[in-house]
Structures are given as structure tokens and as C-alpha cells.
Amino acid sequence: MRKILVVDDDKHILELVSIHLTRAGYHVLKAENGVQAVGVLQSELPDLAIVDVMMPGMNGFELTKKLHDDWDIPVLLLTAKGELEDKEQGFLAGSDDYLVKPFEPKELLFRIAAILRRYDKPADSILQAGSVTINRKSFEVTAGSSTLLMPLKEFEVLALLASKPNQVFQRAAIMESVWGYDYEGDEQTLNTHIKRIRERLAKIAADVEIVTVRGIGYKLEVHRS
């Protein structure tokens, strides 16, 4: 499970962001200021930090530079200001993205998914999940003597889930990764693709299953015989 550190001196914002991240399947670490955040980092290293700019003591820019220089942790800055100068200062400090308050929770999740995807290691050409082999170069899915040539989006969804078996992928992260941040359709598209992938897998591989994690998203499970 991906860990995200949320740093904000506004307890309401801190709790609100934490609730949405937890619902999306992230493990949340919380701090009310920069000093607390550094303390958290002594025992746990997050995959990403969400940092408020306007904080007493160590401000968001200073904390961002420390996170970037000392721990190489990607940072998404939150601020009530939208001036170009603040954005420039944030990026110079090492932030990866910038979100102005107030913001939609869905946009926050999309931006988080985009940052994490940029930091992921390059994908292997061949993925193995149980009896299923996924070739990212030829776009073929094989199991035993059976071969599937799937529509591209179905293939991309399957490959994403198979890249980390048993890890839950939140719906927003799947949509952003496969369809892109600017996709204007709805989540029913993902539901339809998952249904079709399940039907295809059921015909060639009884040991591989896409499981729905209620309220969060999906994961690919391999059943051992």
C-alpha cells in the first residue's frame, strides 16, 4: 500500500485530505507542521508528500526542499494562493506539482496518481501472473496454448493490475493511467472494461482473477492450486 504524508497546520484540511486518501486506498501519515513531518520521516518513509505552503515555522517551500534534497520524496504543494511567483518558488524548491485551495478531491487523486506513475520504475516487457503471460511489446496475453489479442485499453488495464499482483489500485489511478487526466468519460467505462477482461481471463486461466475491492478499486489475484 502506498504511503502518503500530509502536512498542513489547518486541522480541518488535514483531516479532510486524509479521509479522501484513505478511501482511495492509501496509507496516510499526518503532520501539522514541518518539524512534525521531519519527525515522522525518522521512522517511516512515504511514497509522496502533500505539503501546505503557508505554515508557521518551517514553511512549505522549506520543507519541500528538505524532502527533495534529503529524502528524494516527490511533493505536491497545496496553497490558497495561485500567483505565478508562488508556483515558481514551489517548483524551484523541488515540488512535482501544485494544487490551489479549494480543490476537488478527485483532482487531488488524479494528480497524486500522475506523480506516483512518473516515479515508478520502467515497466518490464514481460509480466507473469500465475499461468498468464503478458507481453507489453507484442500486446499478447497467453496462458498455456491459448493466446488473446485484446483491445488496447483492456490490455493496458490488465497489464497495470498484473504489474503488482495483490496490490489494490484505486479507480482514479487506473483511469488516469490508462485514459489520461483529461478523460471526460465516466467510471462506467472502467466497469465495462473490467467485466470484459474477466470474461476473457475466465476462458484461458482459472488461477487468475480480478477482484473488486469495495469502495476503492481493483486488484489482480493469483490463486495457487
Rank of each mutant, 00 (worst) to 15 (best):
E15Q: 14
D8P: 04
G25S: 06
L149D: 15
K153M: 14
L14A: 02
V157T: 07
L63Q: 00
K65R: 14
L78W: 04
E156W: 14
M55R: 00
D47W: 05
L41A: 00
H27Y: 15
F169L: 12
F61W: 01
T133V: 12
L14V: 05
K164H: 15
D97V: 07
A172I: 13
S138M: 07
E44H: 07
L5S: 01
E107P: 09
E62V: 06
E44W: 06
V6R: 01
V222F: 00
L152R: 14
I204V: 10
S43C: 05
I210D: 04
Q36L: 04
N135R: 07
R171H: 07
A114G: 10
L158H: 06
R136A: 07
E83P: 03
R224N: 08
Q89V: 10
P122V: 04
A202G: 08
T189L: 07
A49S: 08
V35K: 14
I50S: 02
A162Q: 05
Y181H: 15
G180M: 08
I73H: 06
I4W: 05
I4C: 03
L45M: 12
R200D: 09
D186I: 04
D69K: 13
Q167P: 11
K164S: 13
L161V: 10
I13T: 11
A143H: 05
V38E: 09
E187V: 10
E88Y: 13
S177I: 13
A37V: 01
I210S: 05
L29C: 06
E44V: 08
F139W: 12
Q188E: 08
R117G: 12
V40W: 01
Q170K: 14
I4E: 03
P151D: 10
K106P: 11
D72W: 11
L158W: 09
Y26M: 03
V53T: 00
P56L: 00
K137Q: 15
K195M: 13
S225D: 04
V28N: 02
Q89C: 08
R23T: 10
H193A: 09
I19G: 09
S131G: 08
L158E: 05
L108P: 01
V222C: 02
G25C: 03
L45K: 11
M55K: 01
L148S: 06
A162C: 05
G57P: 00
K3M: 06
F110E: 15
D182R: 14
F91D: 06
E104T: 13
T133R: 09
D72E: 13
T212H: 14
A205S: 08
S43A: 10
N191F: 12
G180A: 06
L14N: 01
D8N: 02
E156A: 14
E44P: 07
P151A: 10
I13E: 07
V213R: 03
R224A: 03
E154L: 12
D8E: 01
E209R: 10
I174L: 09
Q167S: 12
S43R: 09
L77I: 10
S225R: 02
K65G: 07
Q89W: 07
F91V: 08
D72M: 08
W179Q: 13
L158G: 08
I112G: 04
Q188M: 11
